[in-house]
Nucleic acid binder design. Structure first.
Lengths: 332, 332
DNA sequence: GAACTTTTTGGAAGCGCTTCCAATTTTGAC
DNA sequence: GTCAAAATTGGAAGCGCTTCCAAAAAGTTC
């Protein structure tokens, strides 16, 4: 592999000059630029990114830490981040935290030790305090799906409470009065907020939140199914199941059918997130859109702007969930 | 950030010694080891991975190039690779090729320029010849989902033909005689092989392959739906739709329902891949299992063994698809 | 304790690039 | 044509580590 030395020798200019054309610096005459480019071409020169990183103290890599690398939600997110980054010549180093605090911390250290120029984080278990502390370190971080007031510039989030509210409001507007709720794990902030929104909508309609018709799941499909079993065992009547995400909603749909009820006639279902398979389901799932792609893209742009000083882009931190009406809710 | 110099000074030993304990070399006395470790601890020393890479000519990063970073299939794959790699202290740099030849080539160059120690590739458009040529370069590559005889040691694949055969055989055994086939794009090797397997099963049962009941889709959901529309327009009768992957199968299910037919009574459906949402569908989708997780893990282990000379692991290149019977096929 | 062998240590070069500083050349104004 | 300012170039140090080689220390054998 040719190095900058050989280019410099062949072109008959100094190392510095080669480096300057490599980095598109101002103050290089057209003539030397041509000579250098010709030499590079001839030698098939390719810059060694590691050497550049060491000398410039920039690795051009961005760490991405998510709960899991698979699953509909994270896939879209990573995809979106990578596209944006690569356009700018940066690369994404990905790793998973598995929703376990220890593992999440290790993930962060792993990425920092990899000399990432910045880290994008979407996790559940680490506390706000930890993240605030982390943000004081030398590696910039951006946080997805969580608003931490102390570092709100670095946060990209949706109004989960509003989402929860709108979902339930919609279902109430369809005439439903007895609602079951299948929640995400309440140690997760988003699960909590969605539940709060649900309660607010209930309140507003003068409906009571029924503890018996509440089930705390884990955001995974199976717990939607189990949730329905549990709910039905209570013998309490409900005409709709409000689910805190689409995966649980898909499980709930299965559960409902296993009890020989049909959707939406016997039991309506609403989800949250609008992951891509929500409209493969039958009936197609009514849900709240979570603009994860846009948020992911925005977080990448934030880094381009703040870490790499790329030309200004408009950055928006707060996103809004939107109702997507499909077929899983019936009017009563 | 403390460097190796400071550690060396504090511990009262030479740079080389510090480096040696850092890299777990033999020939370091217990005494100096202790001194060095204590110094590291005291300084909160963290090795600079970029500097290590430059000096050792190893970046400890593995490039992963796939068609898309999202989608059920690739998600599982990346997840599996990353877990295996990270256990070994290596990291994954991911990028997408979007099934476009030019873009796939760029992806490869991108990863090579990133000084990846090896690259894992799962793409569609690049030719075998190109990949053979690439494998002669200095960056080792491993190829998923394709068997290239000339470099078969570097390939991890399933027998797609067998899969296609088994799927169709199963459906024939249920009494179906009129089968429609929704294929993947035939420029993709796997799509082709699956189709061949389908034809072999047909042949074996003395059934004729009906060109009219064939539709070439693109492996995405929508084309399953469109495929069914097309098939129904032909007015040809068919009692089952064999789909070359699960995404198209889910689209096909939607299509069938849109025509007011029920699954599996009016039309049975079978998929391929067994992606995780296959059993969220209603009815749950009968499909062929594609052990992508195992294959991905194996490819990572191959790299650990061959590139990083980790202790021997058993490496298996060829995997077998297996029938997963669920509810989307009825007996006739 | 001499003569070897083996283990442990330190020194120094070098990985391929960036960047600061100073030197040189070019440009422009008069 | 002169002089100052601006543009362009080259030299050299340095980024933080690995690794080769030789020197020093420790063990072994007789």
């Amino acid at each position: 592999m040719a190095t900058i030395y050989e280019v410099s020798a062949l072109a008959g200019v100094s190392l510095s000059s080669v480096s300057r054309v490599l980095n598109d610096h101002e103050h290089v005459s057209e003539k030397t630029k041509q000579k250098v480019m010709a030499a590079m071409e001839e030698l098939g020169y390719r810059p060694n990114s590691v050497a550049r990183s060491l000398a410039s103290n920039r690795s051009n890599s961005i760490g991405v830490l998510v709960s899991e690398l698979h699953g509909p939600f994270y896939g879209e997110m990573i995809s979106s981040i990578e596209m944006e980054l690569r356009k700018a010549g940066k690369h994404a180093v990905v790793t998973a935290g598995h929703s376990v605090e220890k593992s999440e911390k290790e993930g962060i250290n792993f990425l920092i030790d990899r000399n990432c120029d910045a880290i994008i984080i979407l996790i559940d278990s680490l506390s706000n305090e930890f993240l605030i502390e982390l943000s004081k370190g030398s590696t910039p971080i951006v946080i997805l799906n969580r608003l931490i007031p102390e570092i709100k510039e670095n946060c990209f989030y949706i109004d989960n409470e509003l989402g929860g509210y709108l979902a339930t409001k919609h279902i109430i507007e369809q005439g439903h009065k007895e609602l079951a709720y299948i929640s995400g794990p309440l140690f997760k902030q988003d699960a909590n907020e969605r539940l709060n929104g649900h309660k607010r909508a209930l309140n507003e309609a003068n409906l009571k939140f029924d503890e018996e018709l509440f089930y705390e799941g884990d955001f995974l499909t199976t717990s939607g199914r189990v949730g329905i079993d549990h709910l039905i065992k209570t013998k309490r009547k409900f005409t709709a199941a409000v689910c805190a995400n689409d995966e649980m909603a898909s499980g709930a749909m299965k559960g409902v059918r296993d009890h020989n009820m049909s959707i939406p006639q016997d039991c309506s279902v609403i989800g949250f997130d609008n992951v891509y398979f929500a409209n493969y389901l039958h009936p197609e799932l009514t849900t709240m859109n979570y603009p994860i792609k846009e948020m992911a893209k925005m977080s990448a742009q934030w880094i381009l702007k703040n870490v790499y000083k790329r030309p200004d882009v408009f950055v928006n931190n707060k996103f809004t969930p939107e109702l997507i009406v499909r077929d899983s809710i019936t009017k009563i």
